[in-house]
Simulated scan of single mutants.
Amino acid sequence: MKRRDFLRAASVPAAATTASATAGLGAAQETETSGGTATGTATGTGTENGTGTGTGTGTGTGTGGDSGGGGSGETVTVTVGPGGSLVYEPGTEEPLQIAPGTTVEFVWDSDNHNIVVESQPEGANWGGHESIENTGFTYSHTFETLGTYEYYCDPHRSAGMEATIEVVENPEPAGGGGGGEKELHDLGVPIHAHWVGAATILGILVTVIFTFYILKYGESPHTGTGRN
């Protein structure tokens, strides 16, 4: 076989091998592209599902918040004549503040008391409970209209058995008294009066002695004047 024929024969398988490798690479690239497209589609679907889930969760939370707003459905207890005292508690010493929609339950803790409405906001329909009742009786009313309600016990009004209910949008906690000053023992700090007095006297004595020393002796002799 001539050298030229040998080279021609050898080049045919090589070309075929190169063509096969090229076709395989093209097929692999095409498959990879298709796989990428499929992945993109799946991601798009996932995003759509995520958006739908987020919207559903937001709607549920909003509805729950609206249902619980405004203090609607709350119940507050007022004791009538606690322990035989001629007061309504709370309400006599300080007005009882509640939110619209709050139910006040009046519980009799002593005998011969009633509830007579003296004044209330325009449009309110509170009739009180004017029948005389004894220990263990309960009476409830739901207050909806904003404003001030004043009432009293008819048999004991002259003794000061009167009270006030204020229906407001943002009531203070019952018995809270706002942000007023509180005693240290109310904050849970143990303290004794004699220690406070002793510390005060000691502070005064130290101040007086120090002031006397400064006035009598002035500056220390070792203090420099800044001159040679």
Rank of each mutant, 00 (worst) to 15 (best):
G56Q: 15
G58R: 10
T61N: 09
T61G: 06
G62S: 12
G62A: 14
T63W: 05
T63A: 15
G64S: 14
G64A: 15
S67G: 14
S67P: 09
G68A: 12
G69H: 12
G70L: 01
G70N: 12
G73M: 09
G73R: 02
G73Q: 03
E74C: 03
T75M: 02
V76I: 08
T77L: 10
T77G: 06
V80L: 02
G81D: 11
G81V: 05
P82A: 03
G83D: 07
G83P: 00
G84L: 05
G84I: 06
S85C: 08
L86Q: 13
L86E: 13
L86G: 11
L86N: 14
L86P: 00
V87R: 11
V87G: 10
Y88A: 00
E89T: 10
E89P: 09
P90F: 05
P90Q: 05
P90C: 09
G91L: 11
G91R: 01
T92L: 10
Q97R: 09
Q97M: 15
I98Y: 08
I98T: 07
P100T: 00
P100N: 00
T102E: 06
T103A: 05
T103I: 07
V104R: 03
E105P: 01
E105L: 13
F106C: 05
F106P: 07
V107W: 11
V107R: 15
W108Y: 10
D109H: 07
S110T: 11
S110H: 04
S110W: 01
H113I: 11
N114I: 01
I115C: 03
V116F: 05
E118Y: 05
E118I: 04
S119Q: 04
S119N: 05
P121V: 09
E122Q: 12
E122A: 15
E122D: 14
E122C: 10
E122T: 13
G123K: 03
A124W: 03
A124D: 03
N125P: 02
N125G: 08
G127Q: 12
G128C: 04
G128V: 02
E130D: 13
S131W: 05
I132G: 07
I132R: 04
E133C: 11
N134S: 05
G136T: 07
G136E: 10
G136Y: 08
F137D: 10
F137L: 01
T138S: 14
Y139A: 04
S140N: 13
S140E: 13
S140M: 04
H141W: 14
H141Q: 01
F143G: 01
E144P: 00
E144H: 01
E144V: 04
E144I: 04
E144S: 02
G147Y: 05
T148N: 09
T148V: 13
Y149I: 00
E150R: 12
E150M: 07
Y152M: 12
Y152D: 09
C153L: 08
C153N: 03
D154C: 02
D154L: 08
P155Y: 01
P155I: 07
P155R: 02
P155A: 10
